[in-house]
């Protein structure tokens, strides 16, 4: 807490933008994000887009896993539903991308509710296995429902257009991603301070106690699943619009794990954490990628080690964070901030 920042009402405590200082720096950040395409090259914008999708997906997963405590190993499958629904709606039905995306996300939310039904009966390990099964079943459906998904060949998707302007470059798409990511983060942040958010946290902390206090577990667990898969659907649909193609290989089990890793590395139950986690988990492999291609001339043959290296580092990050920094990057950030705001008189 900053010095001199006294709160006199609960409403003050719940405010998202608590001080002028925060507002100012957020405005600066937003301005920077808006101006980024003016200076950045295509590669940076490409990465920025990927980070945007990851932020949306990770925030969604954090609502479910971090805030409600329901572990999902099937997040990639929900993204897949969103992606496929977007692709099918735009190409087959001919709905414009802007309407197809929310409809696709609703479809994903519906499937999310279906997958979430076991959560009413089981929790912990069992739920985790049930969502894992959902991931594999849905992936199988993507591959084998040929008439709808075109199997492993996938579906080509036209880029979204608005009044004759096609969002088909990294730069123009960046703005689509940015707007949606900001809305997604803002919405999630707001959900957490409403009745829904408090119900989620109560369920996570002790579901039986929550039920005693009159929280309808049936409703709120399913709401959490629906919300999380809605986010996943948006992220998946956006990604498909960006890649202009959708295949089952875009949504493997590994991607689900990657999202869980983002949430854990970022910080469970923290929206800011999911953003950090998403940025971190996208940037690490990309940095490795750059390093390995830069060192290609120095150490030939090293680029073959890149793929496995990525997996090792990825796994090591999960393990190390869990053992040494279980509250993730959000906690680190908080500590750093505290250090500076209290400096030089910490404690």
């Amino acid at each position: 807490m900053r010095c001199g920042d006294f709160k006199e009402a609960y409403l003050d405590d719940e405010k998202i933008f608590q001080t002028l200082f925060v507002k100012f720096w957020l405005a600066v950040l937003l301005l920077f994000l808006i101006c980024l395409p003016l200076v950045a090259n295509e590669y940076v914008l490409y990465i920025a887009n990927l980070i945007g999708f990851a932020v949306i997906g990770a925030v969604g997963l954090n609502l479910l896993t971090g805030c409600t405590g329901q572990i999902s190993l099937g997040h990639a499958a929900f993204m897949g539903i969103g992606g496929y629904a977007t692709a099918i709606l735009t190409t087959r039905v001919g709905i414009p991308f802007w309407f197809a995306l929310p409809i696709a996300a609703l479809v994903a939310a519906l499937v999310g509710i279906l997958v979430g039904i076991p959560s009413l009966r089981v929790k912990g390990l069992y739920l985790c296995i049930a969502t894992l099964a959902a991931q594999f079943i849905l992936n199988w459906v993507f591959v084998h429902w040929e008439s709808m998904t075109h199997g492993i060949r996938g579906i080509n998707v036209p880029p979204p257009t608005l009044g004759g302007f096609a969002f088909d470059t990294e730069k123009s798409y960046y703005y689509v991603t940015l707007v949606l990511a900001v809305i997604a983060v803002g919405f999630a942040r707001n959900v957490l301070r409403t009745k829904w958010g408090r119900a989620f946290v109560a369920i996570r902390d002790r579901d039986l106690a929550a039920e005693m206090m009159g929280i309808n577990l049936f409703r709120y667990k399913l709401v959490a699943f629906a919300l999380s898969s809605f986010y996943a659907g948006i992220a998946g649909g956006l990604w498909v619009g960006f890649m202009k193609v959708v295949t089952p290989e875009h949504f493997p089990f590994l991607l689900s794990i990657e999202y869980l890793a983002m949430v854990i590395v970022g910080g469970l139950g923290s929206i800011l954490g999911s953003i950090f986690g998403a940025i971190f988990m996208i940037l690490v492999p990309e940095t490795l990628n750059v390093l390995s291609s830069a060192s290609k001339s120095l150490f030939p043959g090293l680029e073959q080690l890149f793929m496995p290296m990525k997996e090792v580092i990825f796994g090591a990050l999960i393990v190390l964070f869990l053992i040494f920094e279980p509250h993730g990057l959000a906690e680190l950030w908080q500590r750093t901030k505290n250090f500076f705001s209290l400096w030089p008189f910490s404690y």
Partner: peptide, 26 residues
């Protein structure tokens, strides 16, 4: 991780899987 919440324990085995898979690959 003994006594940690279930998600940590599950995720740590997943992380472990990733490390082992990468090493085997290498």
């Amino acid at each position: 991780l003994i006594g940690e919440p279930i998600i940590s324990v599950i995720m740590v085995t997943i992380g472990l899987a990733s490390i082992l898979r990468g090493l085997t690959y290498m």
